[in-house]
Amino acid sequence: MERLSVINRKSQNRKQAYESNNDNQNLSLIEYLFLCELKLVHVHDDYIEQLLFDTKTYLPNNVRLCIDYKSLQRVTHNFTRDATRINCTKINDLRLRAESKCSNLSLQEYFPYAKICYSIMF
């Protein structure tokens, strides 16, 4: 799979059951070896976590990520969360849906190899 778009604004029903079960040790790591574009624009934060946590998903290098700025900010705990940092360093093209450009040094440090673009729509 080269492109993945997720659209689901509802939270994951069984998320709590999985989290309480030995920190997801019974779940396999999902690998997207050929992924080049990941669109997470109209999704609940649960799905963003699922795809950006390095303990749940393996992303290759050089991925384009299209995502809502506020959602990304929440899931990454204002660009400080270690659980999402590894996969975020693999992003080389970050397309943020935002009302205006956000000058955030933490964002650039969190996505050190990414060209960052802002847009109102995708």
Rank of each mutant, 00 (worst) to 15 (best):
D54I: 04
R14N: 15
Y118E: 00
L33N: 14
Y69G: 03
D54Q: 13
S20G: 15
T84D: 09
F79M: 01
H44V: 03
P60N: 10
Y32M: 11
I48T: 09
A114I: 01
T76D: 00
L40D: 13
I91Y: 05
H44F: 06
L72E: 00
V63F: 00
F79Y: 01
L65S: 05
N21G: 08
L94Q: 05
N8V: 10
S119W: 02
E31I: 05
L96Q: 06
D54K: 13
A17P: 09
A98P: 07
I48P: 07
R95W: 06
Y32P: 08
R14T: 12
K39G: 09
Q73N: 09
Y118W: 07
L107N: 02
T80K: 10
Y18A: 15
I67K: 02
E19R: 15
N22E: 15
K70R: 07
K90C: 09
L96I: 01
K39L: 08
D93C: 02
E99F: 10
H44K: 04
H44D: 13
N61I: 08
E37Q: 11
R14K: 15
D23G: 15
D82K: 11
K101E: 03
L51F: 15
I116P: 03
N62W: 00
D54P: 05
A114C: 04
R14P: 09
D46L: 06
C88L: 00
E31M: 08
Y18F: 15
L105E: 03
E2H: 14
R9C: 13
I91S: 06
L4I: 11
L29T: 03
K115M: 04
N13I: 10
R97H: 05
I91F: 07
Q16N: 14
I30L: 14
R3V: 10
D54L: 08
Y110Q: 01
Y113Q: 12
A83F: 06
Y47E: 05
D45M: 06
L52D: 03
M1Q: 10
D46R: 01
D23P: 07
K115Y: 05
C36V: 02
L59I: 02
E109R: 07
D46I: 05
L107A: 03
T84H: 13
K90T: 05
V41Q: 08
I67H: 04
R81P: 00
V63H: 00
N78P: 02
I48R: 03
V6G: 03
I91N: 05
E49W: 03
L52S: 09
A83I: 02
R3N: 12
L59F: 06
M1K: 10
K39H: 11
V63Y: 00
H77K: 12
H42L: 12
I120D: 04
D46G: 06
R95Q: 11
Q25Y: 11
I116T: 07
Y113S: 11
L105I: 04
